[in-house]
Simulated assay, not measured.
Amino acid sequence: MSQFTVSGRFKSRDGFAEFETTIDAQNENVAREHTLSQFGSQHGLKRSEIELDEVSEQ
């Protein structure tokens, strides 16, 4: 498995909050999906409220 750094922003009460997280995944698409599901469950967000700006392999 490879490590991917995913950055973006999500809708919060004060507008948008930026984030950057590191994910272990098989490829870039799996890293995107894992990030969307993780932030959605942690912050109670829908996928449309999360914007992924960049996914890069480390």
Rank of each mutant, 00 (worst) to 15 (best):
D53E: 12
R47P: 11
F16G: 04
D24I: 06
I23S: 01
G15C: 05
M1K: 00
E28Q: 15
Q38I: 09
K11A: 11
I23V: 08
G8L: 12
F10P: 02
T35F: 03
V55N: 10
E28M: 15
I23M: 06
Q3G: 02
F39E: 06
E51T: 11
F39A: 06
S2N: 09
Q26G: 12
E51L: 14
H34V: 14
A25R: 01
S56D: 15
E49F: 01
D24Q: 05
H43V: 07
Q58W: 12
T5K: 12
E49N: 05
G8E: 05
M1F: 00
E33P: 02
Q38R: 12
E54F: 06
F4N: 02
F39H: 06
S7W: 09
G8T: 04
A25T: 03
A17C: 09
H43L: 14
Q26P: 08
D53P: 00
E18Q: 10
V30H: 11
Q3P: 01
V30C: 10
R9G: 12
S56F: 14
V55K: 10
G8Y: 00
S37G: 04
R47K: 10
V55C: 07
G44M: 02
F19Q: 05
L36V: 09
D24R: 00
S56N: 15
T5N: 03
V30G: 03
G40C: 02
S2R: 13
L52F: 14
V55M: 11
A31F: 05
T21Q: 08
F19E: 06
E20W: 08
Q58F: 10
R9A: 07
S37F: 10
E33K: 13
F10H: 03
S7P: 04
S41R: 09
Q3Y: 10
R32Q: 10
F16L: 13
Q3I: 10
